[in-house]
Computed example of a mutant assay.
Amino acid sequence: MRKFLFPMIVALPLLAGGCIAKTVVDVATLPVRAGAQAADWATTSQDESDRNYGRKMRKQEAREGKERRKQQKECEKRGGENCAYDGARASDPR
């Protein structure tokens, strides 16, 4: 039994050495990765900014379309005279 136990005990640190070294590296780089993640959460990327702007413009255009349809219906009820639309437009920076 001793013949098998001694070589196993001697080989154990050699076999586990990679795991310990990787754990030490992971622990050492954890604050750096956490800081990078926090910076990523705190800032808005250009892609996110573009996506948010597109969403905002689509909502604004939908509002404008509803307003135009409402105005057109009211105009038709009045007989269709003087139906120029002078409401908000999505491209106007009001």
Rank of each mutant, 00 (worst) to 15 (best):
M1N: 09
R2W: 12
R2T: 07
R2M: 07
K3T: 12
F4Y: 08
F4C: 09
L5Y: 07
L5E: 14
F6N: 00
F6P: 01
M8L: 13
M8H: 10
I9P: 00
I9W: 06
V10P: 05
A11S: 15
A11M: 15
A11F: 14
P13S: 14
L14Q: 01
L14K: 01
L15A: 15
A16V: 15
C19R: 13
C19L: 09
A21G: 02
A21D: 02
K22Q: 14
V24S: 01
V24R: 00
V24I: 05
V25C: 01
D26L: 07
D26Y: 04
V27I: 15
A28K: 03
A28L: 07
A28Y: 02
T29P: 03
P31G: 10
P31H: 11
P31W: 08
P31S: 15
V32W: 05
V32L: 11
R33F: 01
R33H: 01
A34R: 12
A34M: 14
A34N: 14
A34I: 14
G35D: 05
A36W: 09
Q37I: 04
Q37D: 09
Q37Y: 08
A38N: 08
A38C: 00
A38I: 02
A39W: 04
A39T: 15
A39R: 08
A39F: 04
A42E: 12
A42Y: 11
A42L: 14
T43F: 05
T43Y: 08
T44V: 15
T44K: 13
T44C: 09
T44Y: 00
T44L: 13
S45C: 13
S45E: 07
E48I: 03
S49R: 09
D50E: 11
R51C: 06
R51Q: 14
Y53K: 13
G54I: 03
G54K: 09
G54F: 11
G54N: 11
R55H: 05
K56I: 06
K56S: 15
M57T: 14
M57V: 11
M57F: 06
R58K: 10
R58L: 09
R58E: 09
R58P: 00
K59Q: 13
Q60F: 06
Q60E: 12
Q60Y: 06
E61Y: 10
A62Q: 09
A62I: 07
E64D: 12
E64M: 03
K66R: 15
K66F: 06
E67Y: 01
R68S: 01
R69N: 03
R69Y: 02
R69D: 06
K70A: 01
K70V: 01
K70E: 03
Q71D: 10
Q72Y: 14
Q72C: 05
K73P: 02
E74T: 03
E76R: 15
K77Q: 04
R78F: 01
R78A: 13
R78M: 06
G80I: 07
G80L: 06
E81Q: 12
E81L: 10
E81P: 01
E81G: 10
N82C: 07
C83A: 13
A84G: 02
Y85Q: 01
Y85K: 00
Y85P: 00
Y85C: 00
D86Q: 13
D86A: 11
D86C: 04
D86F: 04
G87T: 03
G87A: 07
A88T: 07
R89H: 09
S91E: 15
S91T: 14
D92L: 07
D92I: 03
P93I: 12
R94I: 05
